[in-house]
Design a protein around this nucleic acid. Sequence first.
DNA 1: GATCACAACTCGTCCGCACAAGTGGATGAG
DNA 2: CTCATCCACTTGTGCGGACGAGTTGTGATC
Lengths: 236, 236
Amino acid sequence: MDFAPPKYAQVMRAIQERIESGEYAPGDMLPSETQLVRELGVGRTTVVRALQTLAMQGWIEREHGRGSFVKGRPQSAADRVRPSLMTAEQGESAGAVVEAGRIPAPRHVARLLGVAEGTPVIARKRLARNADVVSAVETVWIPLEHALGTDLDKPEPLRRGIRQHLQAVKHLRFDHITERVSARTPTQEEAELLGSSNPVLGVLATVHDPAGNVLMVVSLALPGSLHELEDVFKVS
Amino acid sequence: MDFAPPKYAQVMRAIQERIESGEYAPGDMLPSETQLVRELGVGRTTVVRALQTLAMQGWIEREHGRGSFVKGRPQSAADRVRPSLMTAEQGESAGAVVEAGRIPAPRHVARLLGVAEGTPVIARKRLARNADVVSAVETVWIPLEHALGTDLDKPEPLRRGIRQHLQAVKHLRFDHITERVSARTPTQEEAELLGSSNPVLGVLATVHDPAGNVLMVVSLALPGSLHELEDVFKVS
DNA sequence: GATCACAACTCGTCCGCACAAGTGGATGAG
DNA sequence: CTCATCCACTTGTGCGGACGAGTTGTGATC
């Protein structure tokens, strides 16, 4: 079964698309709430909720008694691409999983997980493909206790992302992620999978639950020629 | 005249105070919406709006069908280190400046500055040292119009950072910065300056004024073995 | 005892309506 | 012309009701 997104989200998307397409340019006044009600066939409650959410996200500005005005696509630190979160969130397609099973934890992973080096953990390694080119090698390391009873140690592709799977099966909740990015030469194995030994962006991330415990470690190798991490931020 | 804050804000404050006082402890379930409606004498619309806003701000968590649960006072994510901003902010020490003067803009810089390739611009290249090791090659590209009258084209070290210098002399204000990070092999020149041709983090940043005009471009080569960019962020 | 259906609760969304309050142009008195 | 007033518009807030959907306990049934 598939679900239609809620109406207020549909209204938001409709307006966002008109802003991105240039139909509503920055500075323009949006149609009034009552106009949108008539045009979109929804209640004013719904329109107001959509507009207020857009205002909170920085797309528009609302002035009491005057109208709503376009500001443009919001640039916030929040919409930065977080490669580790993408990895945890995306489902898997056929053939993506290279390896999934129990492995002694290497030192750098053991330290981040807070276990002794060599402790058996579940490692799940997969390939991200982009137009038939391998665009990333993703390895997820999970302590046995958290992987127990999940499908993470099975080579079959997951239909939902790892985060949703862990939440549904084990009620584990992600709270925050610490991500460290560096540049390095790919390991032998990564070079073979990527078909190149050019420099890669190495991302090493720890995923924490609300109590601060480390749920898992994500390690990524992103070929420098294919990936750029973009970030826009205000100067104080 | 003084105004009473809107009711939904009063409801928010009431719940925040109960969380801060410990009456509602983290993990506790809040009273249900209908209970709060009776207790506070407001409509459910108002209670729902207050609770949804608190959830967006991270005070509580709402689970469909189960209830609302206390998370605690929200904490904003730690600020990330912005290498390009550091570069623009720091002063220079003796011998740091490798080169400063007029150069035809290379293609990738010209595109970011919005000028034709080969247009003369000011390039200022310097080295960051850390315990006598060259830890970064920093190049700043500035259109002639912005560099005119400044000391940016002179090889003498600046006592203040580039940002303060531009603001004091030319009244230019930084508003936001777009930063793109990738992994690459250092150029011939960078490799010589760094004394190594190991992979580097390549940072390419454009600095914008409040109107969105590009004030300058910053290009950094950070050896992967010496630099890690760390970032902590909340998961939705 | 295990299983299933159901009721009673939760939050999620949506509607129509109402009134307050801010803005700006039209209108008419002076 | 100047100014106050009014009116038509805008958004802000609030209410009650309705229905959907997820969760959990309870009790009947097998």
